[in-house]
Design a protein around this nucleic acid. Sequence first.
DNA 1: ATTACAAATGAGAATGATTAGCATTAGCAT
DNA 2: ATGCTAATGCTAATCATTCTCATTTGTAAT
Lengths: 141, 141
Amino acid sequence: MNELSHLKSAGLKSTLPRLKVLSLFESGSERHLSAEDVYKKLLASGDDVGLATVYRVLNQFEQAGLLVKHHFEGDKSVFELNQGDHHDHIVCLQCGRVEEFYDATIEQRQKKAAAERGFELHDHSLYIYANCVKPKCQYRN
Amino acid sequence: MNELSHLKSAGLKSTLPRLKVLSLFESGSERHLSAEDVYKKLLASGDDVGLATVYRVLNQFEQAGLLVKHHFEGDKSVFELNQGDHHDHIVCLQCGRVEEFYDATIEQRQKKAAAERGFELHDHSLYIYANCVKPKCQYRN
DNA sequence: ATTACAAATGAGAATGATTAGCATTAGCAT
DNA sequence: ATGCTAATGCTAATCATTCTCATTTGTAAT
């Protein structure tokens, strides 16, 4: 199951902009990208797509399950490749480093908490805001 | 320690708009309010404050530790009275009902997850998005 | 009480992210 | 090769939130 088939099954035509965006995420240089990030990276590599298109494509990919959208602290949202594995994030408040983690116990207790209060868990978002420890932030100069 | 002393200790003058906003939260009719909500409620009760002021005051109160700000799904943020007890939220995707909960295990595992990855937990945000169970959503018509 | 001044307010402009509208272009099936 | 619909690229529009700045209001000192 490659990119093309993914697009197909989502009822999306395989267009140039879409393929560009997709391969950007698959190249894996950076895992978490905002619409603006994607836009700039594409421009930088000579491919010029409109910003509006980037937004549209990103959202379509999210609907299609190709990408996952996150709202870290701040206003702009970021997207990452959906590799099937659900995970949460730890974000360094200083340098922005992002680590992913998964904790089965947390997941389970969430479901329990919801159930106990008459809810059926549909989804959740957990972000841990922290500071890299030690001398200085690893990603800070 | 009342409202006035709170304002004082935060270095904030006790002005009319600030007292109005504060008492709105303390009246407790609704626990979670957005800037827009506050603005409308004040207008409705004849007190007319500017929207900009509401935003300013809300943020100052957050800095001062009087209120806590949350970003539920969607774009606008909501505030609630800070009563010292940290808790997370479950939000019904259908009707918007919000329940608060606290799970010591979750809290602890978060700290652990952060520590294990070289972070010092500073803060976190956990929102569970769910649906009220049973026949129909309690708050839905 | 009155004064004096910095802090606070209000109204509207400005911002920043994201979306909508629409004419033009490009996949894709015939 | 043709035609039609979806997709793209602009630009303008939204929405929440913040900023600017002239005017007003607490407050502490007279």
